[in-house]
């Protein structure tokens, strides 16, 4: 084979690799849609949001298929966890850059990396045997939106902390020197100089943690109580879309099974929307 034909072959193989990798998302979407079709046909799209409750059955006519409370559960847990983890993560990153002596900062980074390495089922296990009984003493049943938010916040904290840490490291040192020369206080430097300069990195971190929070399954399945309802308070139990799939998939037949693929489809749509929003927002912000 001549070098050039070898190169051409190489390019095609590489294209095949890249094409296949890129096609996985499409494959996922196609298979979710295919498996959802029976439910979409027999139940109809509207019923997933208008039925009185979630009591799925093998045959669409016998069941009720409202996904809205679980979508609300997913969004509430996600919002709560992001609201809690974001300031904590920013604080951890600030600590490593501006407050801790170098040794302690390194230890702190290690710790956050360790935290990132703990699998979700272990967080869930800990939540189940420690956190839920504790919350139960405050307000039964313990397994609740709050338990979910706390565990979820803990799980996404490393993501935002590490991203923020990276973003802060990229702030040019001249900015800091300039701020010091102007006699700005430390808090004024952080709020007025560092955060604006690191904005896009911080923002990417928030988007990443939001995606992670939306998709988390096992830990939430273990601590949230899994009652299908829109929680009226932090102490009410609830079920997320992800937990719903994990809880019922092994048991589901017929239209019930298909309805679970519909919830998967809703999740995928949520993630795509999030990615699109991130891109749209970041484009708007770069030249602000």
């Amino acid at each position: 084979m001549s070098p050039s034909s070898k190169d051409r072959l190489l390019v095609w193989v590489l294209r095949a690799c890249a094409g296949l990798s890129g096609a996985i998302v499409l494959l996922i979407a196609v298979f979710l849609v295919l498996e959802s079709l029976p439910a979409l046909r027999n139940v109809g799209f509207a019923r997933f949001f208008s039925d009185p409750s979630w009591h799925p059955a093998r045959y669409a006519a016998d069941g009720a298929y409202n996904l809205a409370p679980m979508l609300a559960g997913t969004l509430l847990a996600m919002a709560g966890a992001v609201a809690l983890a974001t300031p904590l993560g920013f604080c951890a990153a600030l600590f490593c850059h501006f407050y801790a002596p170098p040794g302690l900062a390194r230890a702190c980074r290690r710790l956050i990396e360790l935290l990132a390495g703990i699998p979700s089922v272990v967080y869930g296990f800990w939540g189940l045997v420690t956190l839920v009984p504790l919350l139960n003493k405050v307000q039964p049943p313990g397994a609740s939106l709050l338990a979910g938010i706390l565990i979820l916040a803990l799980m996404i904290l490393p993501t935002i902390a590490l991203m923020a840490d990276g973003a802060l490291a990229n702030v040019p040192a001249e900015y800091l020197r300039g701020a010091a020369a102007l006699g700005l206080s430390r808090s004024a430097t952080i709020v007025g100089v560092v955060f604006p300069a690191a904005k896009s990195g911080l923002f990417t971190g928030v988007i990443l943690e939001t995606g992670r929070a939306a998709g988390e399954t096992m830990a939430l399945l273990m601590v949230c109580g899994n009652v299908v309802q829109v929680p009226k308070s932090l102490f009410d139990p609830m079920r997320t879309l992800t937990a719903n799939i994990a809880l019922e998939m092994g048991y589901a037949l017929g239209d019930h099974r298909s309805a679970l693929f519909v919830s998967g489809l809703v999740l995928l749509a949520l993630i795509v929307a999030l990615a699109a929003a991130a891109e749209w927002l970041s484009k708007g912000r770069v030249y602000e």
């Binding site: 009185p52 409750s53 009591h55 009720a64 039964p140 049943p141 397994a143 109580g225 899994n226 009652v227 299908v228 139990p237 079920r239 809880l247």
Partner: peptide, 8 residues
């Protein structure tokens, strides 16, 4: 549908 559960 009538069961009022706190945990499922």
């Amino acid at each position: 549908a009538n069961v009022k559960a706190s945990v499922v």
